[in-house]
Design a binder for these strands. Sequence first.
RNA 1: GGGCGAUUAGCUCAGCUGGUUUAGAGCGUCUGCCUUACAAGCAGAGGGUCUGCGGUUCGAAUCCGUAAUCGCCCACCA
Length: 882
Amino acid sequence: MNELASKYNPQEVEQKWYDFWMEHGLFHSEPDDREPYCIVIPPPNVTGVLHMGHMLNNTIQDILVRRARMQGKNALWVPGTDHAAIATETKVIAKLAEQGIKKTELTREQFLEHAWDWTRNHGGIILSQLRKLGASCDWDRTAFTLDELRSKSVIKVFCDLYDKGLIYRGLRMVNWDPQNRTAISDDEVYYQQEHSKLYYLRYYVAGDPEGRYAVVATTRPETIMGDTAMCINPKDPKNEWLKGRRVIVPLVGREIPVIEDRYVDMEFGTGCLKVTPAHDKNDEMLGKTHNLEVIDIFNEDATLNEHGGKYAGKDRFEVRRLIAADLHEAGLMEKVEDYTNNVGYSERTKVAIEPRLSLQWFIRMKHFAEIALPPVMEDIIRFVPEKYKNTYRVWMENIQDWCISRQLWWGHRIPAYYYTAADGSETFVVAESAEKALEKAIAESGLPLTPDSLHQDEGALDTWFSSWLWPITLFNGILNPGNKEISYYYPTSTLVTGPDIIFFWVARMIMAGYEYVGKQPFDNVYFTGIVRDKLGRKMSKSLGNSPDPLELIDRFGADGVRMGLMLAAPAGNDIMYDDSLCEQGRNFCNKIWNAFRLVKGWQTDDSIPQPEAARLGVEWFEHKLNHTLAELNDLMGKFRISEALMAVYKLFWDEFSSWLLEVVKPPFGQPIDRKTYDAVLAGFDTLLKMLHPFMPFITEELWQHLYERKEGESIMYARLPEHIADAPGQTESIARFETLKEIIAGIRTIRKQKQIPQRDPLRLLVKGPHDSTLDAILIKMGNLEAIETVEEKPAMSQAFMVGATEYAVPLESNINVEEEIAKLQADLEYQLKFLAGVEKKLSNERFVASAPEKVVALERKKQSDANEKIAAIRAALAALGK
RNA sequence: GGGCGAUUAGCUCAGCUGGUUUAGAGCGUCUGCCUUACAAGCAGAGGGUCUGCGGUUCGAAUCCGUAAUCGCCCACCA
């Protein structure tokens, strides 16, 4: 380490230390008698690639885990990936399509073969990218939501919940994704405002001699084939005449009843609503109340089926155009208006969802909401930031049953087995395996069934049905409850995730945690913000505003990028990302690097005594360090990570580098005394430890070279020092030094203004009270030849004030009196105004009477300080002849 | 439509239960420096009537009301 480049080069050190950590198994954790600290990774999509959100999220997790490790806890961060059923299946279908293969041409087994190939080829890329970031995950424990252990657990839980009556199969209106031909949950639908049309259709009244008709406004004329009623509000006077009539569905010619329901908004359109129970949630509800026929007019891919008549086989949007034209031609279209409405889309395929009645599997959520709400409200599980408690509560209080089945192949296959019962009807059993299902079916039906008599449900489970067990299945807590690992690591410590999946995932993990372990899955949930670009836009592929994280690491180093993200990321706040943040991180690395070069470049000499300035500097810095340790603890405890980092940043850059190192720096070419040197190294060592969770690579590199280290030793396991509570004299020491800084800044300003080089020594004149404790430092940093107390400062001098004390530097040339007077007068004016404010307060009897004594005393102190200062300024002005 | 949150320096944000704050920080800006660790640097400086209005109080960036603007979540009126 003798010849160190003047710039830190992250490429040279990052891979080296990551390999070192891996080789020595430093990320691995096993249960022992230490206090555990555990984080489970929010499993990214197995086929995904790293984006800025992951960077942010995983940097935070790594900081927490590394810090816990350095606090002597047994820290474990479990990595893994998610099979992302819909996303992956969509990608595989697309890839097969490129090769001219249709999913429908493949068997389930063949398709799964392709999906596994895809997973093997693309899977895990994201995990290797995390290593570049420095993530200290225990890779030995890498899990996958679709691996054997997790799969078995999922099936077991499904069967268990079914047996408990918490899972049921039912015909429900679900959100249907016609592209993937699957149901999706409400949470997987997003709504978008759209400019569309509102069509006014004529429904002639059957058998009306006057040939009258009702007008119905709809955005979806293509669904008229499914109409089974028209609905009006019973209180609507303008539609009174329609009561009890029947109307004719336009084009279709079918007669339907006019029903009455207060659900209908009289103000909307004409107050007449067409009811299509098969294709709209509210219509379904009306259909049920009024016992209407249900006509499903769509195929699985949202083309019209045989009920569509001449439109059968055509896509819903095409049919909309055709029908609109036909209606127009037939004179059945009253008018068409522009209209803006919200249309639901599938999050995954971006295709407009179709409400559709189908047989699906559901979980009864009421029970789960009851067990999962109180612990969050009572802060047994602490949400950071707290505002999400509200969001959580509202969701829990309005909980809907969870549709867990998907018409997909890639995922955990639903363990329901269908067979034909003795009476010829289809029935099913739920069991963990085909064998058990057969036994059960035979027992229940009394029939001589064979394996061929049963066929398993074709559907798969929602991915979140495996994710919600994640903190449990990672420790095999479903198949082997109460085992050593789950007992030790569970509940985990902190979950770090985005607020966008608070319902998908966080809430459901809490439910599963209480249901299956009887305890919360984690003690804290840290919700990160969304990474946006500096214009505040979400980062997205289509906008092209998302930087490639690995390229950023190349440019700024992993430590630089980590720091860049952390600087701008208070919990729950979105971060406006800009490369300049990473630049700041990189610059800081360079600063640390160069401080190290300076310190390690010093020769030591045991024979020289410690200079007074160095002794005082070291003493002060120890106080300052101790103070910042306390601050760091406090901020990290509140998950105020960016502020914590900033505190250490300032400690290193301002206090350590700009002050301590300059104070103790030996004259050029001369050695430093041993005592000071040791103290500086010890301070450096602590600083590196404080920084390590944030910037693991550079701190390891320098820590290794700071002292001789044992083979295999790492900063990762170096203990963070505890701060000393109430260190005697700390507050005074820090305050005294702050005053010193002001005096030195005053001297530097004079040097700058008068263009006096630093190497020319100055005399400092003091008029007023002055604490001389730190004079040795003052002399060195100011390059003073003398500090003299005076009654009157000479005319040929330039002065500045610190508190009520006037400091002056005698000059050879005349000062600019005008300028000086102007400055003093401005100061005087300010002080007078301030004093007036204080005195106004103090002369207010009610203030003196009702404010606490402490506050009044403070105001009096302000008053006397200001008076003192004003006197000093006036004296200075008088000396200038004013 | 309902709910939540925000608005403090050019930018990003602290400021916690009203008074130790004469409103702070980082970055950027301006000025002077290639001073023997670092120009990815050093030193110095400037910059805010705390979104508007009203109220409570001896005292308000802080509490209450109200308006505006922005953001998010929930609902999904055809």
